[in-house]
Amino acid sequence: MNDQTIIAIVAMACAALTVALGAIGAAIGESRIGAAAMDALARQPDEASSITRTLFVSLAMVESTAIFCLVIALILLFANPFIGSAGQ
């Protein structure tokens, strides 16, 4: 097992861990945002348009942390600077 193999194994494991742990945080955050938006909608149905707009914006902000994790994982897998012939 040479150095390149070890680096490839570690990179794959790290990519899987990155996506898994990143998805946990984003999922918890989005569920809390959804619950809070439902609560606000039930209390103030008149404000539905502004609540929905803020809901989408905050969902996207929270979702972007998971997307950052995905991008990092894809960099580890496909554009890893430490693996010789990787990247395109």
């Binding site: 996207a60 979702e63 972007s64 997307i67 950052f68 995905l70 991008v71 894809l74």
Partner: peptide
Amino acid sequence: LALAVRLFGNIMSGHL
């Protein structure tokens, strides 16, 4: 940076 990476990540991952 977040604006750029968010849009890129979402669209690229959907296409992928």
